[in-house]
Design a protein around this nucleic acid. Structure first.
Lengths: 210, 210, 210, 210
DNA sequence: CATGAATGAGTCTTCATTCAT
DNA sequence: TATGAATGAAGACTCATTCAT
């Protein structure tokens, strides 16, 4: 009895996922403006109109992709930052690991997120949505900052501006991914994980006390 | 007497500069696809058609902005990297200084350049132009790499992958700028230069030997 | 029940026909370059964009008009030319009759076809399409040539270059139509068919043996 | 003293001729709509604006080409038609010869003229100019008609509609030129003159009495 | 629920024409 | 006289979005 409603519901979920996956792939590959609703519909193997059954607009679809991805990552990082029982260096490595896992598990989502600030779509989203995204985005860096501040308080890291160090680490991560992806695309082996790890060690070395 | 030709020529230069400035501003603020020729013309206070007097296409205009800026920066960095008589740390600081000067002197150009890898405009430029841009872009990181390798060879820096360190520094620069610009936009004081310097010191600390 | 799909299909066919008819009329009246997509859309009472639902480009629309018309006429003429059991004079008259019927049944298509060589649209169509059209076009004259050659072989027509005679007949046809249409437009009676017939008789007289 | 004015005047004439020649070439090769003022200016090696010193508009330039060419040909044909002392067949051959000479001497002018009716530029010229052109155009056929009527009156040609016969001859001429030009363009030898002559003979044979 | 079809509002680009020099 | 520069108006084509079925 309930089965039909259930199945319908499941199918609906699938349909939505299908759209989002296609959209994420394309937004990442071609950018917001260069991706058309038609492209997304084609990739999802549905009609243009169907997208509008589930999303109010192209805008809305975009936001619906970035927001939960960013949210998911944020929650993970918050959890890690709060494992106060671990030593700060390990927690930093864990933050990086989690971010890398997030990236590996859903590269499109990662790119959407990582790129968000860089893309000029502040013109494209409503003030509200934009603000919300900025909050989430900065939360990630904040978690790093918390761990570093802890490290300084514990005397493990040199005195320094923890926010600055957080920014350095965060941007290094994004930069390395970008760079190594480029090389990967040009046929090189996959050094993404190992380079990330190396970079973190250099920075830890730079802030470690003694 | 010769004045007329001269003035004409100067006016033409001005007109071109006017267009390029408007274009740079808008491409930076809204991205390539979201910027229309009409927007640019309006900002430059000329007609759409006039743009086509000086640039073959929107594409061409875009490229004409990115390429020489990047070229200029590249040349500066190459010069700095080759002042072998200076100690490596100073040379790294000089590279950063030069990049910062470039940024400060022409923020639009900088953003166009810095964003190049992040933007999806591999779909937008011809293979040729794209390749050329990639070359120039990677040259900048290469200069840093050279200095770092020198430092390692001289025993000043720890053994490490110089390319990796270069990437870290480069991305840190871009990240810090981005971050501090956001804060600036939200009303904070201007900590751009000082944060950059702080970040460089952390990294130098991280790679310095002994 | 099945009716819906059927009706939809019919409506779609109609829409396409609507567009083609409007296009044919305008291309004939004003020529390719002077006819705008907007003109066609207006005449068909649809939006510009709708045309692009059914045709890839203005080019494509033009070609889609000329090609099948020419093809249709070609096939008819080939059939007539091959009724070897008929005497050559009758076959020539039949070719002319068929061409006239074609003209009468779809004057726009005829004009598109007849004008093809004269119009400068070799600059407008792709090499491929242009070649195909030239083939079809020359096929028509070839059919006449075949019949004339038969007539010469059978001793009914004077020795002469059959291709030349074919050209004479073909161009006479087109010229007479053009001329009589002009007069018609100026209010004269309709002498198209009768003049055509008269002209053919003169030419037959000119090539007939004995 | 007068020399300067004279030279100026001569230069002006040259300039105008230069423009007209370029225009004629291009209008013929690419058609009215597809030929731009810029094309013409480039070929004439002057600036766009200069054209407007001598011609009110593109339209005007076009007309200024067609009209005098057609006029020139008309006058010649009128003269020939009135050499009543010659026998009709010779006069017909002379008309054809004169038309061929005209064609050979200035192919661009010929094409402009021959194509006039076929081109869709009734939409492009003013009623007045259009009417004038039509008059001139039909005058040419009228001259042929006069000769043919003379031939019939003299008992040399069969009873028939002289206008019809004139049309046949006229269109045959244009058709043969077109056809042989196509072949020429494809690398064949030049059979233009000989084919014309052959065609005329066939037609004369068709209308000759006895 | 799903979609084929339609379109209004743009986008880039071209061109005939004008005008200050 | 000649022209370099500028532009309004238009043209082909695209796309997010709606709606009847």
């Amino acid at each position: 009895m309930m089965g039909i409603t259930e199945r319908k519901s499941r199918e609906k979920e699938n349909r939505i996922k299908q759209i989002r996956d296609s959209a994420a792939t394309l937004f990442y590959k071609k950018g917001y403006a260069a991706t058309t609703i038609g492209d997304i519909a084609a990739l999802a193997e549905i009609s243009n109109a169907t997208i509008y059954l589930y999303f109010k607009s192209k805008d809305d679809l975009y936001y619906s992709l970035v927001e939960p991805s960013l949210d998911r990552l944020s929650k993970r990082l918050i959890a890690i930052a709060n494992t106060k029982e671990l030593d700060p260096e390990s927690r930093i490595r864990n933050v990086i690991s989690a971010t890398y896992d997030f990236y590996e598990g859903d590269p499109d989502a990662y790119h959407l997120v990582s790129r968000y600030e860089a893309s000029g779509f502040s013109k494209v989203l409503s003030k509200d949505k934009l603000h919300q995204l900025k909050e989430l985005m900065s939360s990630n860096i904040n978690q790093l900052e918390i761990v570093i501040a802890d490290g300084i308080a514990l005397g493990r890291f040199c005195e320094s501006n923890p926010k600055l160090t957080a920014i350095i680490i965060w941007n290094t991560f994004m930069g390395v991914i970008q760079f190594q992806e480029n090389r990967l695309a040009e046929g090189s082996s996959d050094y993404r994980r190992s380079t990330i790890d190396g970079a973190v060690e250099i920075i830890l070395q730079g802030i470690r006390k003694g």
